[in-house]
């Protein structure tokens, strides 16, 4: 659970990216943050996670945040298991090394995201999608129950996007508080319980069902967007269609 109270941030000499922003990242739900490039989604996430101090207001965190950065190859060819073990850095003493219990936690985190069979492979040799799932496992391995994912699906193919979205959904259903920045309105429509829309002049927060609508997204992306409800399984889902031009 994270609560931001009236937070604001601007870069030195720049305009306020957001100001007086109050929002909650509740447990058991996925909160999706959307907005155009350069609007400050990553900055907001860094303020919420504590990597960056807001210029005004304050953030209440019940516990540390587990980060899932965008996957990039590591410099050295660590095994996937070594990579996931780094998630335990907070609980492993400064002058200490991982114990058997840490290795067990790393393996169970890998199993949780369905990539246990990769444990002994070099991280550098994985595909982008596998790497991203391994980084989710690293975040889980920390034991913190607040996850923040910064555009995790940006470099993934459709099938890996599906795997990532399913894992995020399941974790929220297990009680994790999940915050995700995304450029894919379809992902937000499928996944989000709550949404944060970073418009050019204001920030809107609320339930996803109310915020992820054609008119709101049209304004957000400065491009005509329509939504379509289609049947899926026993229910239905919302598809988001941006109209790129004719």
């Amino acid at each position: 659970m994270i609560e931001a109270h009236g937070i604001g941030f601007h870069h030195p000499g720049g305009d306020w990216l957001f100001r007086g922003l109050t929002l909650t990242v509740p447990p058991g739900a996925v909160t999706c943050v959307m907005g155009p490039n350069g609007r400050g989604k990553t900055t907001l996430m860094r303020c919420l996670s504590g990597l960056l101090a807001p210029k005004e207001g304050f953030v209440v965190r019940e516990e540390h945040v587990a980060h899932v950065p965008q996957a990039s190859p590591s410099t050295f060819a660590f095994s996937v298991l070594d990579m996931v073990l780094m998630g335990r850095a907070r609980s492993i003493g400064t002058f200490s090394r991982p114990r058997a219990s840490d290795v067990r936690a790393a393996r169970s985190a890998l199993r949780r995201v369905g990539t246990l069979e990769l444990a002994e492979r070099p991280f550098t040799e994985l595909s982008g999608g596998q790497r991203q799932l391994v980084l989710v496992a690293r975040a889980l391995c920390s034991g913190h129950r607040t996850l923040m994912l910064d555009e995790p699906a940006s470099a993934l193919d459709v099938r890996n996007q599906g795997a990532l979205l399913r894992v995020s959904r399941e974790l929220a259903d297990e009680g994790y508080a999940v915050l995700m920045n995304t450029h894919h309105p379809d992902h937000a429509a499928w996944l989000a319980d709550r949404a944060v829309l970073m418009h050019t002049d204001r920030v809107e927060t609320g339930s996803a069902a109310e915020l992820i609508t054609g008119p709101a997204l049209t304004e957000l992306f400065a491009l005509p967007v329509s939504t379509h409800t289609v049947p899926e399984g026993r229910g239905e889902r919302v598809l988001v269609a941006p109209h790129y031009g004719s």
């Binding site: 459709v158 099938r159 996007q161 599906g162 979205l165 399913r166 959904r169 399941e170 499928w190 289609v230 899926e232 399984g233 889902r237």
Partner: peptide, 11 residues
């Protein structure tokens, strides 16, 4: 959802 939905609709 984890099993059916995504594999049908997304992929």
């Amino acid at each position: 959802r984890p099993e059916g939905r995504a594999s049908e609709a997304v992929t």
